[in-house]
Design a binder for these strands. Structure first.
Lengths: 155, 155
DNA sequence: ATGGGAATGGGAATCATTTTCATTAAGGGT
DNA sequence: ACCCTTAATGAAAATGATTCCCATTCCCAT
């Protein structure tokens, strides 16, 4: 748990500078338990470095997504959400999105089975469409246990 | 290919009215070969019924999504895109999204294998998280054959 | 320490989507 | 076919996330 965070290495020789704002944003993301919006990142970072602006958050998060350090998600609530991609302690997972309240549940169940199938699918699609696949998104939409009852009352 | 379009039946006794704008928008979507944005739908519909406003397009498309007649997608280009969901002639498919040019390729390969796995996954997730799953999205991101070479030149 | 390109931040600008509200039109009951 | 109730509509304004602009600041190789 000591020494520089793992992402420092990713900034070596790639032409980008590891600045205070970038490091701070990565720190916030690494501590976040959930998928943060740009504004949420801004508020969190602002507590430690009040000088960091929202514009920088957008730019940084975009850069990091380009570097593959963070994943950008859209859960249909009108704003993008970001999550550290790899790194220690993070497991590949997919999402369950509630259409009622917007809650997002990460799940890792069946990931192994999915992974196997996706590996095959990716290989075949890459070949067939001459497409270089870099990542994938899987999301299930529906109603969480709190919103299910509400929906039933409507009828 | 004659008689009223299949979706007319879906407006019976559901409390919603089948109006000219709604029918026109459904017609546009049924003829569209690709995923249209609200604005694209607006332009297409506008050619036939110039009185129909963009607001109505948004409202309608939202309603139709709620009814399950259309699917709403986000391919990361800053606007939502819509596609008729079921109906004759449409097959369940997933998407390949190019990060370079934004092109979207529909594919149906492996859908059967995926379907089987997803059926199991959905059942298990529903139970474990007490979640009512209504739909899913699968998207692969990467570079299409045109954008792959460009990317390589950057290095 | 210094010069130059990279990075930043604040405010204005952009652009998709939503809200408001006065007007219009579906479609069931007659 | 004609009302009548109420859902649906459209134009304009509002909203809200994200991006642009540009003067200033920062990093780092020399």
């Amino acid at each position: 748990m000591h020494g520089p965070p793992w992402w420092h290495g990713r900034f070596r020789g790639c032409g980008y500078r590891l600045t205070i704002p970038r490091d701070a944003i990565l720190n916030v993301l690494s501590k976040a338990s959930k998928h943060l919006s740009a504004e949420e990142i801004y508020f969190a970072v602002h507590k430690i470095y009040p000088a960091i602006g929202l514009t920088t958050v957008y730019r940084t998060v975009d850069l990091l997504a380009g570097m593959g350090l963070v994943h950008k998600f859209d859960f249909g609530d009108g704003r993008s959400r970001y999550e550290l991609s790899k790194g220690p302690g993070s497991i590949h997972h997919h999402h369950l999105v509630c259409r009622g309240c917007g809650r997002v549940i990460d799940y890792t169940d069946f990931i192994d089975e999915e992974a196997e199938l996706f590996k095959q699918t990716e290989a075949a699609l890459s070949k067939k469409y001459n497409f270089k696949i870099k990542s994938h998104r899987v999301q299930f939409y529906g109603l969480c246990e709190k919103c299910k009852p509400k929906e039933e009352n409507k009828e």
